Amino acid sequence: MTSALISYKRHSFPPEIIAHVVWLYHRFSLSLREVEEMLLERGIMVSYETIRRWGLKFGPDYVGRLRRKASSSNDIWHLDEVVVSIQGKKHYLCRAVDQDGYVLDEILQTRRNTKAAKRLLMRLLKRQGKAPKRIITDKLGSYNDAKRKVCQK
């Protein structure tokens, strides 16, 4: 998780610990004090203020690398939707998550049909650059129809 562009000079902690702390803080949206407690359980005494400073200094680089996770042909995508009510109207929030828990894409749609599923798959393929090894869904028929239509092109 370390990078050659980042300088850890004048820091009393090893780069691996700093990288792990910043990763914990940004990846899991923990509070500074929660990260401090987690480290204290492991015998590492770091104040929450130090964690905050590390997050400000090293965070943008780590967050950028977390968001730019390279897709591979061995990926497994999980597609699912949730019903959301917006001003009394039903909408469907469709999400695509990979096997590591990274959210690949989200899209809010008014319909739950083949056209909507096809739109989600086309966006995913465009953003990721390559198709996954497997797509896991909740057995909704529109996902299967959309997969057939998108994969035939």
Rank of each mutant, 00 (worst) to 15 (best):
P60T: 05
Y143I: 07
C151I: 13
R65F: 11
N113T: 04
R111T: 04
I6W: 07
G43A: 13
K126F: 10
L39F: 09
S31N: 12
R68T: 01
E16S: 08
P60E: 10
V103Y: 06
A4F: 13
L24F: 11
P15N: 05
A131Y: 03
Q128V: 09
G59F: 08
Y25F: 15
S73P: 12
W23P: 00
D105C: 02
S7V: 06
G64E: 08
T137D: 05
K126Y: 09
L30C: 10
R53W: 02
L5P: 00
G43E: 12
F58S: 05
S73G: 06
Y25A: 13
T50R: 04
S71H: 08
Y143C: 02
R27L: 05
W54T: 10
D98T: 09
S85K: 13
I6Q: 14
I86Q: 03
L121G: 05
V82N: 09
E41A: 11
A70P: 13
R52A: 06
A96M: 04
L120F: 13
A96E: 09
S85F: 09
Y62V: 13
Y8G: 04
R123Q: 10
V83G: 05
S3C: 12
D80C: 10
M38F: 13
L66F: 15
S7G: 04
E81V: 06
T114R: 03
Q99T: 08
D98N: 13
D105V: 04
S71P: 05
A4L: 13
V46W: 01
V63Y: 03
K130V: 14
L124P: 00
A4N: 10
K9G: 05
H20C: 01
E81H: 04
S3R: 06
L140D: 11
Y92R: 01
F58N: 00
R27M: 10
